[in-house]
Design a binder for these strands. Structure first.
Lengths: 238, 238
DNA sequence: TAGATTGTTAATCGATTAACAATC
DNA sequence: TAGATTGTTAATCGATTAACAATC
């Protein structure tokens, strides 16, 4: 059963690669719009902010879509990456939370463009229901299940305050959504078949602060007061 | 010069660990507010959504702050992680772009809270200048350099449309900012001493679409039509 | 002392990178 | 053919994980 098999073709693209494909795609689309027919791995890598070895390795997971001595056909590679990412079909997205963040998301160019369709923007606040945002009318949160079914929503976006997020997530999952993009600063609990990605503004800031502090340490001059090798030990708190 | 040295204490916390510290910190702060004095690695890991081996390994990079047989003192660990992340001092942040996203960021709880201070919210659009958002008056983009100097801004946040992002980034860098959080869908070019972190909404959606597609493939039944092993070859496009 | 839980070790896994043979 | 550039190999590096000795 779990015997070593000949391995059909090694499906499965590394996660790190998947996360970079959208970046390559964006660079390629810009090239396409400017009418550039082909691009080398060196040039494309530079535009995507990675080194060319990594780019070629990443693309090699999709197949051999380049031409030695020439480079990659821009249009062809746009198509191959789009297909790999699942952007040749349309995904229906529902956003919960019609505050500034939800509105920003609804208006965000990248959302409405190829591959995604915002099916609904919902909120619990009656005063917001009916507002028009990005060509949509804000709906009431109680219509969530109905919208998910009627519009075949496969991706739920949570742009609510932290306290509301888990409940909204549960409703998405209950309605059959298996991909969630969470902007609320909480760890969501979901069954294993559900994918959650998280965007956390304050975490990003904290990571920057960490590095900023390191830089500042250097600037303050070479003589550190001493490294806190022996901290005072667990303090109070019981 | 580059001779093998005794190694003072192996400074340098792995990036993957740094990125998780804010998550641990948030879970610990919640525990602290609920008056919990100590927590085991198992419990804290569960709340942070990681396994306990990883949590202990991560914390071990900061020092030995736990007690065998007991767990971690919540308050003490909050302090140690905060210090490591550089949150025991205040960082001044300037946000450029006072559209929905900029307003969402300015209003975001996690921003104003401990460790960060929003020094300014700027925009190029005269009609927005003077608007009050989250207790701030929107300023004009031309005051950027003055604000950075006067307020000692160390982190610049870019919440502008894509076309404006690189120019704003250049101004931040020119004014001496060395950490940038970018929400615009472009790859920013910066000198090596500048840290850029990027939050890209459409990239997150595309990564979800990739996985969603994989799940859908499975659902469609076991008989695939065939794997596109031999693609048609570079199509047209020149 | 017995039970609990940390901090560390070592094995494994996945990602990055440089180099270069293949080939247009 | 000569020059350019891909796709792949192999070495290296960093991250994850399970297991357990140390120790409260």
């Amino acid at each position: 059963m779990t015997r070593r098999e000949p391995r059909p073709r090694e499906r499965g693209i590394p996660e790190a690669t998947v996360a970079r494909l959208p970046v390559y795609l964006r660079a390629l689309q810009a090239l396409s719009e400017s009418g550039t027919p082909t691009v080398s791995s060196e040039e494309l890598a530079s535009r995507a902010g990675v080194n060319s070895a990594k780019l070629r390795k990443d693309l090699s997971h999709l197949g051999s879509y380049g031409t030695r001595g020439v480079g990659y056909d821009v249009g062809y590679l746009v198509y191959q990456i789009s297909r790999e990412l699942g952007l040749t079909q349309d995904w229906s997205v529902a956003i919960v939370g019609a505050g500034n963040l939800g509105r920003a998301l609804a208006n965000y160019g990248g959302f409405g463009t190829r591959g995604f369709r915002i099916a609904a923007l919902l909120d619990a606040e009656p005063a917001l229901v009916g507002d028009r945002v990005a060509g949509l009318s804000v709906g009431h949160i109680d219509t969530l299940e109905g919208v998910v079914e009627a519009e075949n929503v496969s991706i739920g976006v949570i742009a609510t305050p932290a306290q509301a997020a888990q409940a909204v997530c549960d409703r998405f999952v209950g309605a059959g959504v298996t991909s969630v993009l969470n902007f609320a600063p909480v760890v969501l609990n979901v069954p294993p078949e559900v994918d959650v990605r998280k965007v956390d503004l304050s975490i990003e800031l904290q990571i920057l602060a960490f590095h900023e502090q390191r830089k500042a340490d250097g600037r303050e001059g070479p003589e550190r007061i001493g490294t806190l090798d022996a901290p005072p030990g667990p303090a109070g708190g019981q």
